[in-house]
Each structure stands twice: as structure tokens, then as C-alpha cells.
Simulated assay, not measured.
Amino acid sequence: MPVRQEQQSAPILSLGFSPCPNDTFIFDALIHGRVDCGFRFREQLEDVETLNRMALESVLDVSKVSYHLLGHILKDYLLLRSGGALGRGCGPLVVARGQVDPATLAGKRVALPGRYTTAALLLRLFNPTLTDFVYLPFHEIMAAVADGSVAAGVIIHESRFTYQEYGLHKVLDLGEWWERETGHPIPLGGIAAKRSLGREVLLRLEQGIAESVEYAFGHPGEARPYIRAHSQEMSDEVCDAHIGLYVNDFSRGLGSEGEAAVRLLLGRAAAAGIIPPWQDPLLIF
């Protein structure tokens, strides 16, 4: 679909998200002008922990961030209701070389996919006595566990579908633990936007991202080239499984259930001293 003349002259906002299939699926229509919220976007595709650190420095206007990191940036950013990853059966996994009791990991080194990831937050909430962490890019964690560099690792993204190829075993599903503990779906990552953009712009962004999600669901084939351009090492089957796991109705909009889950996660993190308490509004009102 060609970009209309009014889109060509629209203001440009910087937008960060990961190259993972769920994010490229969600943002394809917005980036390529298939939906129009009155802005053009300069996209920056980075791994989630890089995006987290960029958000800490307030680099991007709009960015996918871990919900853990969101708790550290609420003075400057708020959460958009659309475009995020939140659901059931999609949480991070703890893997090890054999069948290991999670209680025996105390005092042992565990690999995490970034200091500010929700995976790191969930593990700390699950067992606050774990303190010996090494932070690695998410795609390096399985190899580190397999070669014995660490006793266990927390894996995310497409690693959920491939860890058995490394001879690893699932020790714990942190998403299942959270759902059993709270009854809520697990909030993994959301879209943060600068408060300084103003309410009107923020509402247009929120609606535009929701429309981009709807367009992707309605025209899945149109996003395929963009998805494959950034996930060439994955098979089509893994790409489709990734999208199916992380893109759902909560990606269209959090709704009351999703919002309650986010508030509970951040509340527990603040109570544990992992993120600071906050008073600024979380969402656009």
C-alpha cells in the first residue's frame, strides 16, 4: 500500500521494538503506512535489554520495554494499552542440564537475559534468596547452561521452542508459577511512550498501535516479508509459533484484566524493593 501524501508530511516519532516475530508482526502496518495515526515512525530494532537501557536514558519517543523496566521509568514514560505482550502459558522458563529442584539453585550461578527484563523480576519474586546472576543476551543463555558455565538459565522468546535441542530440561515455568500464585496472566513487555508527548498524541499512538495489531490479524501475509527480514535464522514454523504465543487479545488492548495484572506485578516488585514506588499515573486517562 503506497504511503499517502498526508502521511509523507506527518511528524516523525522514534519507535523502538525488538526484531522478534511478535513485534514485527504488530508494528508492520504502522511502520509501512498501512494504518495512519498521524505520524511517521523511525523504527529502531534492538533486543529487549538494549531497549530497556535506552528507555532508562529516555532516548526514544515510544518503545517496547519489559514491565520490570517500566517500574523504573514512570516519571518520564507511561504505558500504552496496546501493542504489548501479556498472556497465559507464555512466561519465561528456567532450564538446566538435568532435572533440578528449583530450591537447590540457591547459591548457584543463574543466567538471566538482562538486568531489567521481566524474566529477571519474576525469578527474584519467586525466590528472593537467589543472588548470583550473570546477565547474557537471551540467545546465548542456552549454550552457557549446556556447557556448564552456569547452573541454570532463564530463557525467553523463541528459546522456549528450541531449548531441548541443547539437551536441556525445564526446571520451572515462571509464567505458570505467576498464574498459579496470582490467578492473573503474566505481563511480559509493554509499549511505553513519553509523557511529554501530551495526551492527544498519546491517545492517537495507542489507537494507531491497536489498529496495526488488527490489520496484522486481518492480513497476516502482508507482514511476512518484514517478519522474515528480521528473523532469517528461524523457520516459518518457529516464527508462527512465536507470534501465536505472544500476540493475542491483550495486544489489542489490556482491558481491565490486563491492567490489573500489570498493577499487581509492579506492586509486588515495589513491595520487594526491586523497583521504586510510583505516584505518577500508569496509563492515559
Score class of each variant (00 low, 15 high):
residue 86 L to N: 10
residue 85 A to T: 14
residue 59 V to P: 00
residue 87 G to T: 12
residue 80 L to T: 02
residue 86 L to E: 11
residue 61 D to E: 11
residue 61 D to H: 09
residue 73 I to W: 01
residue 46 E to A: 14
residue 80 L to H: 02
residue 100 V to Y: 04
residue 58 S to E: 15
residue 69 L to R: 14
residue 70 L to V: 03
residue 61 D to K: 05
residue 58 S to T: 13
residue 33 G to S: 02
residue 91 G to K: 03
residue 57 E to V: 06
residue 93 L to W: 07
residue 61 D to R: 03
residue 77 Y to G: 11
residue 96 A to Q: 01
residue 103 A to I: 13
residue 46 E to L: 15
residue 67 Y to P: 00
residue 90 C to W: 01
residue 63 S to L: 07
residue 86 L to D: 11
residue 97 R to P: 03
residue 94 V to E: 02
residue 64 K to D: 01
residue 64 K to S: 08
residue 67 Y to V: 05
residue 99 Q to M: 11
residue 59 V to K: 14
residue 71 G to F: 01
residue 98 G to R: 12
residue 62 V to C: 12
residue 99 Q to P: 02
residue 100 V to L: 13
residue 32 H to Y: 06
residue 79 L to M: 14
residue 93 L to C: 12
residue 51 L to K: 14
residue 55 A to P: 02
residue 102 P to M: 09
residue 59 V to E: 01
residue 83 G to V: 01
residue 37 C to H: 06
residue 91 G to V: 07
residue 95 V to M: 07
residue 68 H to N: 15
residue 68 H to V: 08
residue 96 A to C: 10
residue 74 L to A: 05
residue 47 D to W: 12
residue 98 G to N: 10
residue 79 L to G: 01
residue 86 L to R: 03
residue 39 F to R: 01
residue 46 E to Q: 14
residue 94 V to K: 08
residue 79 L to Y: 06
residue 53 R to S: 10
residue 56 L to D: 12
residue 34 R to G: 00
residue 58 S to A: 15
residue 59 V to D: 03
residue 93 L to G: 00
residue 56 L to A: 14
residue 33 G to W: 00
residue 36 D to Q: 02
residue 52 N to F: 03
residue 57 E to F: 06
residue 86 L to W: 08
residue 86 L to K: 01
residue 71 G to Y: 04
residue 74 L to H: 01
residue 84 G to V: 02
residue 72 H to I: 06
residue 73 I to G: 11
residue 63 S to M: 09
residue 36 D to E: 05
residue 92 P to D: 12
residue 45 L to K: 10
residue 46 E to D: 14
residue 71 G to D: 09
residue 66 S to R: 09
residue 85 A to Q: 10
residue 56 L to R: 08
residue 41 F to M: 07
residue 33 G to I: 05
residue 75 K to D: 15
residue 45 L to A: 01
residue 70 L to I: 04
